[in-house]
């Protein structure tokens, strides 16, 4: 598993509070039994009419094609726990483009932020004013290359540097390359079985 110490790339602003995971990926695309094609669907109904004609949306804007950092606002990723949402973002534009490798927003819904980290995608928060400055810069100069640095907890680009926050445990998981948690959970197998052996409801409440 790779260490994620920083993410470097252009940024795409997706403005608005409370952007839920149904908007990030409509439920009908959850009928596929693998994640492999999720990159075709991010924000689908906001990007295309029912007839498939493109609508104005940052993900359709050629200036932001290939962007690797998504800039959101408040409570980004609320609603459904579907991991399909960060999967769709992380695979956006594959294979021609790298996909979204980090999300910076004012705040995140808890499950979404956790799902991002499980994919090695940092979800970092910044103040309202700083997010506004980042979004304005990305819109004014879409060619700006930003660096989200998890060691210094900063997001910088085009002469702008702002402070970001990532919960310490998630930051460590990314920096140490242990964001895929299965291995570290398996390592404690003996302790797990000892705990289970003492849980009343697994042992007839004796």
């Amino acid at each position: 598993m790779s260490k994620v110490t920083s993410v470097r790339g252009r940024a795409v602003p997706v403005r608005g509070d409370d952007i839920d995971t149904d908007r990030i990926i409509p439920a009908r695309y959850l009928k596929e039994i693998t994640f492999s094609r999720m990159g075709d669907y991010p924000f689908y109904d906001e990007r295309f009419t029912p007839d498939g004609a493109p609508k104005a949306h940052p993900f359709n804007d050629p200036r932001f094609a290939g962007a690797e950092v998504l800039l959101g606002n408040v409570n980004f990723g609320c609603g459904s726990s579907r991991e399909h949402a960060p999967q769709a973002l992380a695979r956006w534009g594959h294979p021609a483009h790298p996909g979204i490798k980090a999300v910076v927003a004012e705040s995140f819904a808890e499950i979404f932020a956790g799902n991002c980290v499980m994919l090695g995608v940092p979800a970092a928060t910044a103040s309202k004013a700083d997010v506004a400055a980042l979004q304005a810069l990305a819109e004014r100069a879409p060619e700006t290359v930003f660096t989200l640095d998890l060691e210094s907890l900063t997001m910088s680009g085009g002469g702008l540097t702002v402070a970001v926050a990532v919960p310490e445990s998630r930051r460590r998981a990314l920096l140490e390359g242990s964001w895929d948690s299965t291995g570290s959970l398996l390592a404690n197998r003996a302790k797990v079985e000892a705990l289970a052996a003492g849980l009343p409801y697994l042992n007839g409440f004796r």
């Binding site: 039994i33 445990s169 460590r172 570290s184 959970l185 404690n188």
Partner: peptide, 29 residues
Amino acid sequence: DAHSVAILPTGQTQLFIGLHLVHEVTSPQ
């Protein structure tokens, strides 16, 4: 506390899950 197995190197808690419910949409992967 009753379900805490260990503190992981990241500082997170390894929490035992007593009941896992599964449905068709979020499980095949």
